[in-house]
Nucleic acid binder design. Structure first.
Lengths: 359, 359
DNA sequence: GCGGAAATTTGAATCGATCCAACAAAAATG
DNA sequence: CATTTTTGTTGGATCGATTCAAATTTCCGC
């Protein structure tokens, strides 16, 4: 009777093999996970039975539960999944993470979600040993959500006050100063800033109040760096327009419109990301302005695209790949400690900056 | 006594909460997975206990084992992990896959490995409900390995004789014919082909024997398409040099060297990938040859980069994003059937092709 | 206060493996 | 040949949840 029902497509378990081969499940398990400790004769017999019954090998689901370790790290963001494949900064970062994972055989699980509830669920149910968080917009929510999982995690970008969170970032103040000094030394005195977000869901000119109340301290630090350095050159920083964008096409162009609609056009633009800088170059060229003839531009990040555009972009390069590698290592070798690392940055002078025009 | 030892950092389980709150595991489980069926008063009490004990929520590892479903799909290749973030074709494909996954809340696990043993292990131990295989070099091995997992999988690229494998690909013959006709109609009569691999680990001019014995039938079909169409225009296809590359920089340049070292230089190049086509444009320009003045080039794939280079690339566009979407859907809605889909392709004429020079 | 329907709660079974202490058999030693 | 050692095998416990049939409680109307 029962044998008639066995046609069911129920997948074969290790226990089935053990029974069929006449050994205990312990031995059957050893045949697959530690073949060297089981007698050759038995080993071959079990393997033959497994082969013949069409056993797919030990199911990782079962192994996982026992082992407790997934051997994969989750990379999460509030952007849609395609962000990982589109955004140049993310891509370079992922290359670094991939490298570290490849080296240890760990896997990568991409986590993201179109909406907030899904994000929460995806974070809660991701099968990973830890998370690397891309703290773009909505970063603080992402951190809160992840904290609840009680797994190790690292935030990329140190733009967090919260000292209890492990993070890797760059020295934003120093980088910003490098950029500002470079332009000032070229003789520029009229500036505009294309800024990253100070808080979520805002664009437009930033007031001192907004800057003081910044949620993203990384943005605040970069601005502080710009201003500190420019002050040393006698520039009145209170007159510098700072336009907060969402680091994408639309709001960046809106920012440029707004900046150039004001009385005195800047001769130099400090962009807090290469992405904005590249959009700016494009916008300026379309407007008939020469870069760097009429306007010089310095970016921030050092993505590969910056080297390929026309003119090639002068920028503050972060060691993006290295940050990715370290973040992955931090999760893989996690020891329970909170680590906060600040990496150095480097000014890369290309052709998007030149001497200020006379007058 | 025992209570003194409880300081151990052993993570809290659902059972601990149940005991502490004085309910059964069943009820405790329901509080988290189906809160609506438990009495409000009990629900709040359990939640309060969980909160107070620092419970991280039901562990996905446990849930997974019971549920049997991971809710994630694996994307595998024999290239290193960074391939997913570097290669333009892969990136567009991933965008399509991401889209489908985002829509259903499924996750993506990237699987790859530097070496063969690791690849096997990674495929065997990936926590996924199915695989999408990028069948580049070593595709057949990848298919064999995946088949052993007995999970649903789809091969991208139909270049497989094996009809028992689900696959999505494009009509290679039709695409190739489109490319060849376009060039022939422009008056070209002297051709060269930059070919994808016919088998693993080979580069150099392909002989008829190699073509006949092709492991990758997709490559063979494209070549057949080129030849069929050119024959109709009276071109002697036996004289056309076909150089097999590894679809990367070094071997493609070597191929170009070899092709142009021969007697009569071609006036048109048929490249089986945009990647090779772009490398060819670069190589020709560096050599002082004008594209399309001296040499016309048609690519294959339709990656975004092709539209941005100078001159913009004429190519056979595959519906890459759509292929990715369908592949993901095939895994997510898997019904046990083997599906083989062939998508149409489209000739996109840009500026890398022009009339053949007189003489 | 009672019967019966509806709403909750219980606890054993299950998912698919790995680990390990205990035991058995074979081999080496005195 | 008795006694260690070495080598292999066994079967119960465990990982952390979910499920479901059965037991219990609550709620209602009469």
């Amino acid at each position: 009777m029962a044998s008639l029902l066995e046609g069911k497509a129920r997948p074969i378990r290790l226990a089935d093999i053990a029974k069929a081969a006449g050994v205990s499940h312990g031995t059957a398990s050893n045949v697959f996970s530690r073949p060297e400790i089981v007698r050759a004769e038995v080993r071959e017999r079990v393997k033959a039975v497994a082969e013949q019954m069409g056993y797919a090998g030990p199911d990782p689901k079962g192994r996982l539960l026992r082992a407790g370790r997934v051997n994969a790290i989750g990379v999460a963001t509030t952007e849609p999944l395609s962000y990982f494949f589109d955004d140049p900064f993310a891509r370079v970062m992922m290359a670094g993470i991939s490298e570290a994972c490849d080296a240890t055989g760990a896997g990568i699980a991409l986590v993201s979600a179109a909406n907030q509830e899904k994000l929460a669920w995806n974070i809660q149910s991701a099968l990973v040993d830890g998370f690397i968080l891309f703290c773009i917009e909505g970063g603080s929510r992402l951190v809160d959500l992840t904290r609840e999982r009680r797994l190790p995690f690292v935030a990329l970008e140190l733009g967090f006050q919260d000292e209890t969170v492990s993070a890797i970032g760059v020295d934003n103040v120093a980088g910003a100063r490098l950029a500002a000094r470079h332009l000032a030394e070229l003789g520029h005195r009229r500036f505009a800033v294309l800024s990253l977000a100070f808080a979520d869901n805002r664009t437009g000119f930033a007031t001192p109040d907004i800057v003081r109340g910044a949620l993203y301290t990384g943005t605040r630090d970069r601005l502080a760096g710009y201003f500190e350095e420019l002050s040393r050159f006698g520039v009145d920083t209170t007159k510098i327009p700072v336009y907060e964008t969402e680091n994408e096409e639309r709001s960046t162009r809106a920012g440029l419109e707004a900046i150039f609609a004001r009385g005195e056009a800047p001769t130099a633009i400090l962009a807090m990301s290469d992405r904005m800088a590249l959009i700016a170059i494009d916008w300026l060229k379309a407007r008939g302005l020469s870069v760097p003839g009429d306007v010089s531009i310095v970016g921030f990040d050092g993505v590969p695209d910056g080297a390929l555009c026309t003119p090639p972009l002068t920028t503050i390069a972060q060691p993006i790949t290295e940050i990715g590698r370290r973040a992955a290592r931090m999760i893989l070798d996690h020891d329970g400690a909170v680590r906060r690392e600040t990496m150095g940055v480097e000014l890369i002078v290309r052709a998007s900056t030149g001497p200020a025009r006379k007058g």
